[in-house]
């Protein structure tokens, strides 16, 4: 099995890229000697807030570059790609689901889904994309009638599912979900996880599910605590 994600000797401190937080120079938020995820794995990545989760996600998606070390997605080193190529690479290979407010509120559901395929280099004709969007809606148990509704009219649970559809329409190798269920009640959460797993399985997508809620861990084959891979002394406080 080939590694979809491979991290080597990663270290990161905000000081080098932004002045946002008063973090002293010596204090790295992340220090990860080694971490990898194989194709087809469903990984539950958990850690309390402030454990460097968000930073790791920013790095995995190529929005932030490591201060040192190597982060490879599909054997491609983020650091070796230039800004635009990096954006295109992300567009082509990584799907992402936010904790909440995933959708552009003023676009309708269909446009929100199609936006997922907008920035890649896949030149699929539009009607084919629309077909696929409908298929995804079916798989996610969303009525097709929602397609032309503005995204802001949907319930939170529906919005999160549409976000999966948007992430998957470009058929990414890697799907990263950042606490996608935290805004959902239990019934919705279970339904959400069910369709997420089904679709990941069906599309042969590697899934990285990030959460601070360990009760969900039981549903995943592989569980990784961030604190166990992150050697940074006292990170992010």
């Amino acid at each position: 099995m080939s590694a979809i994600v491979s991290v080597k000797n990663l270290s990161f401190s905000y000081e080098s890229t932004t002045k946002k937080k008063a973090v002293s120079v010596e204090n790295n938020i992340l220090e990860i000697p080694e971490f990898s995820i194989n194709a087809g794995e469903h990984v539950f990545l958990f850690g309390p807030s402030g454990s460097g989760k968000s930073t790791l996600l920013n790095i995995l998606t190529g929005l932030l570059l490591p201060s040192s070390g190597q982060v490879k997605i599909l054997e491609q080193d983020w650091s070796s790609l230039k800004g635009k190529t990096r954006d295109a690479f992300r567009a082509n290979h990584i799907g992402f689901v936010f904790q909440q407010l995933n959708l552009i509120p003023y676009l309708d559901v269909l446009d929100n889904i199609l936006l997922g395929a907008e920035f890649g280099q896949q030149n699929r004709p539009k009607h084919q994309l629309i077909e696929q969007a409908k298929q995804l809606m079916n798989d996610l148990q969303l009525p097709e009638s929602l397609l032309l509704k503005p995204a802001r009219q949907l319930s939170v649970g529906q919005q999160q599912r549409v976000a999966i559809a948007r992430a998957l329409i470009k058929e990414p190798e890697l799907l990263i979900a950042d606490e996608p269920t935290s805004a959902l009640d239990e019934a919705n959460r279970n339904a959400f996880l069910k369709v997420l797993f089904e679709l990941a399985e069906k599309n042969n997508t590697t899934l990285v599910f990030v959460s601070h809620d360990q009760t969900l861990a039981s549903q995943f084959k592989r569980v990784v605590g961030i604190q166990s891979i992150n050697k940074a002394s006292k990170s992010g406080e």
């Binding site: 929005l63 567009a91 936010f98 997922g116 907008e118 948007r166």
Partner: peptide, 16 residues
């Protein structure tokens, strides 16, 4: 800000 984050993670360049 959120909108921009969404577009960015979908692969939109800062130029976009």
């Amino acid at each position: 800000t959120k909108e921009i984050a969404i577009l960015r993670v979908l692969g939109a360049s800062p130029m976009f």
